[in-house]
Design a protein around this nucleic acid. Structure first.
Lengths: 197, 197
DNA sequence: CCACTTACATACGTGGCGTATGCCACAAGG
DNA sequence: CCTTGTGGCATACGCCACGTATGTAAGTGG
């Protein structure tokens, strides 16, 4: 019944990440007291410093977890679409939808960049950016889209969607505004398609 | 020789804003000690709390100042272009260039949103967004661009350029990367033009 | 000239962070 | 077994930064 040692450690780390994720996602990184959320995990800051070095280290771990979830979700969406182009569009729409979730928005698009800097500087390169780049590369190979710089375009799509989401989430009428945003996004993406009549 | 009272006050406020702007722009908002940068302005936190309420209030004042400068710069650029479309493209390119400046990037695109939330929630609505919207509206009236949602598009351009700039600024070779970014941006904007043969 | 406000400085309390240290469980070696 | 580490985590301490409460001098209106 007694769990093996490595499992206990993993559980401790998971509990800390979960507690921090909740705190960061609700009240924000700077407003989250380490004493508080470690206590809710049944631990103290001692465990935190031991496993993650400092508050920023824990934020990185949280981000890594969320990013993995988001990447998996994006891959599922693009894989389930009829055409590659449709898959890409769906992927972008999903990206906006995800950016609407308060936890993702706060951690991935606001506090994350503010505390850790640009994504490319993060230890764990963002899987979402990679996923977008991959989709763009395939579309280019297939001749579905014009000749673009995948890296640049992926970055801009990332920025555009996160910003659009921020705007939607803070609007008076999120549902309706969301439709406007997604529609505007589709229009923007249409401009990337090949002019095949 | 003795300056009138209101002028003294304005000077005090200006000194605080300037000192905070420098501190925020170099070491970042969270890392800036109020005691430190008020001291470099020859004042104390007492003056800060009196005029700006708290640290966030001072950040708002700093942002307002920078935003005014950026808006003026954007307006100059678009006014000096040959055509409206060219003016708009130049405006966007200028936006990316501005986002490359460390002070603007840090304050306007990283710490600002992280501390104050979405721009639309800021007390002083961002003049830059308004400028972009205005340009888009005129282009639409002129029939130069397809039918788009100006608000959404302005937001996405804002997000795309700020993110692209963040990427450029942290790349190994900023000059070359900047060219790639601007070029990619132009390509994206081309997609908005009317299909007038 | 006096009451009152304004524009700041000073003083204090609190809370959060980082580090140093301590304790306990477990694992390895004799 | 006993002993000697070592890793996992808690406790204790000091520091720094923020916010507020209070003080004070200069200005302002009646």
């Amino acid at each position: 019944m007694i769990k093996p040692r490595p499992e206990m450690i993993a559980e401790t780390r998971a509990k800390l990440v979960a507690a921090a994720r909740h705190a960061f996602g609700t009240v924000g990184y700077a407003q989250s007291s380490m004493d508080d959320f470690t206590a809710t995990a049944g631990l103290t800051r001692g465990a935190l410093y031991h496993h993650f070095g400092d508050k920023k280290g824990l934020l990185q771990a949280v981000i890594q977890q969320i990013d993995a979830e988001m990447t998996a979700r994006l891959n599922r969406v693009s894989a389930g679409a009829a055409t590659r182009w449709q898959g890409f569009v769906d992927e972008c729409a999903t990206y906006i939808e995800m950016a609407l979730e308060p936890e993702i928005q706060r951690i991935m698009f606001r506090d994350g960049p503010a505390v850790l800097g640009d994504i490319s500087q993060w230890p764990t390169t963002s899987g979402c950016i990679v996923a977008l780049k991959k989709s763009l590369g395939q579309l280019k190979q297939d001749g579905m889209i014009i000749d673009i710089d995948e890296e640049v375009t992926a970055r801009m799509i990332n920025g555009a969607s996160s910003n659009a989401a921020l705007w939607v989430a803070n609007s008076d009428n999120p549902e309706e505004t969301s439709k406007r945003a997604v529609q505007g996004f589709r229009t923007l993406l249409e401009g990337l398609r090949s002019k095949q009549v």
